[in-house]
Design a protein around this nucleic acid. Structure first.
Lengths: 213, 213
DNA sequence: GTCTATACCGTGATAGAC
DNA sequence: GTCTATCACGGTATAGAC
């Protein structure tokens, strides 16, 4: 029940859900407080300004997520042979923890990942926030991809990562666009199907673009 | 100069730029009016509510864009042999008009496409808006892709389109994320490089996922 | 330390007078 | 087509209860 969760966490949960749904400017502190069932001023008490609350929400789950994705990378590196894991294995390690969070995680994780999609697509400030939250981890994956694609030009790898990031972002945003377009044949909330298609798609794109010609 | 353009258009231009930059809720009518160098109330006079102005902005360039993308498809269909254009050719037809708009178009076109990225990534209402603006055109492309990928399952094609749409959206958003991540080796405003990498990447993904196994 | 009530002041959207 | 008045809502600070 609502009242079992500390108010501080209720504020974070409500803010997470509302920011993911309506964006930063689309939400007021009063809405957040109402949804969290707390007084307006409590958000300021715990977090200070609205922007600081937003940052707290962004940071809350980042380390947990980075940790599980880092472990996934190390796991696939340990179980690979001397030449290291394949592109598919690396992409899979990068993505599966997100699928798990969306499929098996609670509503909070789904909201958080939708928020990440919002951040990643935001001009002017989104790039800084994304870098701060995730660049260390992403660089580890870039290194692994360089090994799996010997001779690839560095720019090619980054542009492929850009494509991966875009496809993933739309999956995290879970907008329902594919439902309408496909007239119900696909469902953007069918995360299993999304990742089952995304992983081979992305891996093939990397190999195509990064193969020496 | 500013004053040569009719005030109604100046409002649309200012709204387009600001909505693309800050999102719907992040912009006030007063900001738009200031940037357009007109009185606040003139926006209401021409367009009614803020939401109606937003819709007018979304619709203004949609038909022009659909037209040029439709022509690109028909052109590649005419110059193909009996079995129709290849996946690469279709993807290229789908994307090149956007590259042209970003590279050679004025600031207005870049802003508009960034706005499309914002719409496509927005939960709850973005899917409806995207469908209304672009589904007829996209369905034509889906049909062409079905022909180019005989035996492919329909869902697979839609999921591949989803990946395409995501990668494209991030390119349109032009957030600068890849600049930081690559430490300056890539630039998200280098549209030529973006599309040069996106087209083979996407085509390879389609072929991988939609090949019969 | 945690929390509530309230007040302040700026800004925003909109309607109606001109 | 323009300007102004209005009114609701926004973020934030503060005083004090528990």
């Amino acid at each position: 029940m609502d009242t079992n969760i500390p108010k501080r966490d209720r504020i974070l949960n409500a803010a997470e859900a509302l920011f993911a749904e309506k964006g930063y400017a689309g939400v007021s502190l009063r809405q957040i407080a109402t949804q969290a069932n707390v007084d307006v001023a409590l958000a300021s008490y715990h977090f200070g300004k609205k922007l600081e609350l937003f940052q707290a929400v962004c940071e809350r789950r980042a380390q947990t997520l980075n940790q599980s994705r880092r472990e996934a990378l190390h796991h696939c590196q340990r179980s690979a042979n001397d030449s290291g894991p394949s592109v598919e294995q690396i992409i899979e390690a990068f993505l599966r923890p997100l699928e798990s969070a969306q499929v098996t995680g609670d509503e909070g994780w789904r909201n958080y990942l939708a928020l990440v999609a919002y951040i990643n697509n935001s001009p002017n400030w989104g790039d800084r926030m994304m870098s701060q939250l995730f660049d260390d981890l992403v660089q580890e994956y870039i290194e692994a991809l360089k090994q799996a694609l010997p001779g690839a030009r560095e720019e090619d790898i980054y542009w492929c990562y850009h494509n991966l990031s875009g496809a993933l972002t739309l999956t995290l945003a879970n907008t329902g666009r594919i439902n309408r377009l496909s007239r119900g044949k696909c469902d953007s909330a069918d995360f299993k199907a999304a990742y089952e298609h995304m992983i081979p798609f992305i891996a093939a794109g990397f190999r195509e673009v990064c193969s020496q010609k």
